[in-house]
């Protein structure tokens, strides 16, 4: 059962949390299968949000990104257990490769998803990925109000449905370079406002 080992709110083991990713990977490889659960859990905790971002970027859907996290980390930890990750110090590159492979599979439809999960998921610990705090929407609306009109238009057109500078520029009759400048300035001002540093309208 895929969810049988999902562990919510896992406590961080101080001994593991001080280790580098590569050290954790070596620890998993060196141990008998399933005997380095603390290291596996710590790796999962660290890698899940990073893989989730990769998934959001390439799949543009929360649920698909969550599926990707499970599949990538199940495969990665299983490969570590099997000693098939030859350069643990290059774990990020390895995970990136697995991400690409799984995204391709997800985009194709079924692929190895079910097979991999059926084969490995029951033995691998899973933690919830830790997203950063949600945005205060009232404050965000107020901060957007403080932007210049062009800045607000560019942000809304850009982020409502992830449009590139070239696309937004074509809609507004501006150059892509101009849109990029406005976008960068607007995001900076918006972030300042959200963190309480921007007082002047």
């Amino acid at each position: 059962m895929i969810c049988s080992n999902v562990v919510s709110s896992l406590e961080t083991d101080p001994a593991e949390s001080s280790l580098a990713d590569a050290d954790l990977a070596r620890r998993v490889t060196a141990a008998a299968p399933g005997e380095a659960l603390a290291a596996e859990t710590e790796l999962y905790r660290r890698l899940a949000p990073r893989v989730e971002l990769y998934g959001l970027r390439h799949l543009r859907a929360e649920q698909a990104a969550a599926d990707l996290v499970q599949q990538v980390l199940v495969l990665t930890i299983e490969r570590l257990r099997e000693g098939r990750v030859r350069e643990p110090e290059r774990l990020a590159s390895y995970v990136l490769g697995v991400c690409r492979m799984v995204v391709l599979d997800l985009k194709r439809g079924e692929g190895r998803r079910k097979r991999a999960l059926e084969r490995y998921a029951a033995d691998v610990p899973m933690a919830e990925s830790s997203s950063s705090p949600r945005v205060d929407l009232d404050r965000l609306a107020s901060c957007l109000d403080r932007l210049h009109e062009r800045e607000r238009s560019v942000l809304v057109l850009t982020f409502y449905s992830e449009r590139s500078a070239t696309e937004v520029a074509a809609e507004l009759g501006l150059s892509p370079g101009n849109v990029r400048v406005i976008r960068h300035r607007a995001l900076g001002r918006l972030r300042e406002c959200m963190s309480g540093e921007l007082s002047a309208p």
């Binding site: 660290r46 990073r50 990769y54 950063s132």
Partner: peptide, 22 residues
């Protein structure tokens, strides 16, 4: 990004902000 929690956190903040705008 896959090797750096700090930059991942920055990107996540940006993604959350983008989602908030939406």
């Amino acid at each position: 990004l896959l090797g750096c929690a700090s930059c991942g956190y920055e990107l996540r903040s940006l993604v959350n902000l983008a989602g908030g705008i939406r």
